[in-house]
C-alpha cells in the first residue's frame, strides 16, 4: 500500500539520512522520528490513486468469481450431495490453518464441497493447493485459479498460512487417491512425504484433519488406461461408472451419493516456527498420526452409514 504525500516525508528523510550517513542502521530507527521534520521537497509521483481495479487478489483468487461459482454449486451441494458437517465449530474463525482431507472421485467433488461449505457458513476464503498441472491448462487453469486454487509449492503454502493467516486446503494423497480403484475406496493412500506437516510447523499453524465420506461413490473409478494417460500427459485416465451410465456426460455428472464431512480436532505441533528444517522422523510420525486420525474417522463414519445414497 502506498502512503499519501505527507506520510511519506519522514521515510524519505530517513532514506536521505541513511544515504548521507551510511553507518546508520535503518532497522534501529524509530519510524516516528522525523515526523515533525519539514517535508522534503520532492515531486510527488503519487498523483495516481491507488486502485486495484480488480478483485483478483495476488494469488489469482477472485471473490466475485467465487460468489458466482458458489451460486452455481449450491444446488449440487444442498440437493444432490446433501452435504452434512460434523464438528464445523472446530474450524477457526481467524488465523491460518491447514485443512487436511482425504481425496476421492475421478474428478474429485470433495474439494469444492469443503471450500463451499466453509466459505458459505464461516465466511472465510479457502485456498486449495493442487498439482501445478492445473496451472498449465488453458481456461480450466484460469478458472481454477480464480476460484482459489494455488499451486502446491511449499513457499506458497507458507505465505498463505503464516504471512496472510488464511485457511488452506490440501489433499496430501494427491492423485494417488483420486485415481484409485473403487475396490480401494476409503483406504487412504500414502500422505506424500509429510511435506504438509513441515509447512504447518514452519508456519506455526495447526493442522485440521477432515474426513469426507461420499466422494468415493460420487464418481467411482472402475478401470484405468495407463496408455491413454501417458498419451494425454495426465496423471491417470479413468473409466468411471458415470461414464458407463451417462456416456460422455459422465465426465461431469456425479452420482448422488450422500456427503458427510467430519472436522477433527486441530493438531498443534509443539515446535518453534520458521526453522530451516524439522526432524524428518518427527514430521513422518505426525503425518502418519494425522493419516491415522482421518482413516479412523472414516471407518467410524462408514460403520454408521446405512445407505450410500441416503446416509
Amino acid at each position: 500500500m502506498m502512503a499519501d504525500g505527507p506520510e511519506r516525508a519522514p521515510e524519505r528523510a530517513l532514506e536521505i539520512a541513511a544515504a548521507t550517513h551510511p553507518d546508520v542502521d535503518l532497522t534501529e530507527i524509530d519510524p516516528g522520528i522525523g515526523r515533525d521534520l519539514v517535508p522534503l521537497a520532492r515531486p510527488a509521483p503519487e498523483t495516481v490513486e491507488e486502485v486495484r481495479r480488480s478483485d483478483v487478489d495476488q494469488w489469482g483468487r477472485s471473490e466475485h468469481f467465487r460468489a458466482l461459482t458458489r451460486r452455481a454449486f449450491e444446488p449440487l451441494y444442498k440437493h444432490w450431495f446433501r452435504v452434512e458437517w460434523e464438528g464445523f465449530e472446530l474450524l477457526p474463525e481467524e488465523g491460518g490453518a491447514l485443512l487436511v482431507a482425504n481425496h476421492a472421485g475421478a474428478i474429485p467433488p470433495d474439494a469444492p464441497s469443503i471450500m463451499h461449505g466453509i466459505e458459505k457458513d464461516l465466511g472465510r476464503p479457502v485456498y486449495g493447493l493442487a498439482e501445478n498441472l492445473f496451472r498449465a491448462l488453458p481456461v480450466v487453469g484460469t478458472l481454477w485459479s480464480r476460484s482459489g486454487g494455488v499451486t502446491a509449492h511449499p513457499d506458497n503454502a507458507y505465505r498463505l498460512l503464516h504471512d496472510e493467516g488464511h485457511l488452506v486446503l490440501v489433499f496430501p494423497e494427491g492423485t494417488k487417491a483420486t485415481g484409485k480403484h473403487y475396490n480401494d475406496r476409503y483406504r487412504l493412500r500414502r500422505f506424500g512425504r509429510g511435506g504438509f506437516v513441515e509447512i504447518a510447523m514452519r508456519a506455526g499453524a495447526p493442522v485440521i484433519p477432515i474426513a469426507v465420506m461420499g466422494a468415493e461413490e460420487a464418481m467411482p473409478v472402475l478401470f484405468k488406461s495407463p496408455r491413454l494417460a501417458k498419451a494425454l500427459n495426465l496423471p491417470y485416465f479413468p473409466i468411471t461408472a458415470n461414464m458407463l451410465a451417462f456416456g460422455p456426460l459422465g465426465l461431469v455428472a456425479y452420482l448422488p451419493a450422500k456427503f458427510r464431512i467430519r472436522v477433527l480436532p486441530p493438531v498443534h505441533f509443539d515446535v518453534a516456527p520458521n526453522q530451516e528444517r524439522y526432524s524428518r522422523s518427527r514430521v513422518m510420525e505426525e503425518s502418519e498420526r494425522i493419516r491415522g486420525m482421518v482413516q479412523d474417522a472414516l471407518y467410524d463414519m462408514l460403520r454408521q452409514r446405512r445407505s450410500v445414497w441416503f446416509g
Binding site: M2, E11, L14, L26, V48, E50
Partner: peptide, 11 residues
C-alpha cells in the same frame, strides 16, 4: 534494506 517504492504495480 530501506528502499521505498513510489509506485505499486497497479499505480
Amino acid at each position: 534494506a530501506g528502499f521505498h517504492y513510489s509506485y505499486t504495480t497497479a499505480s
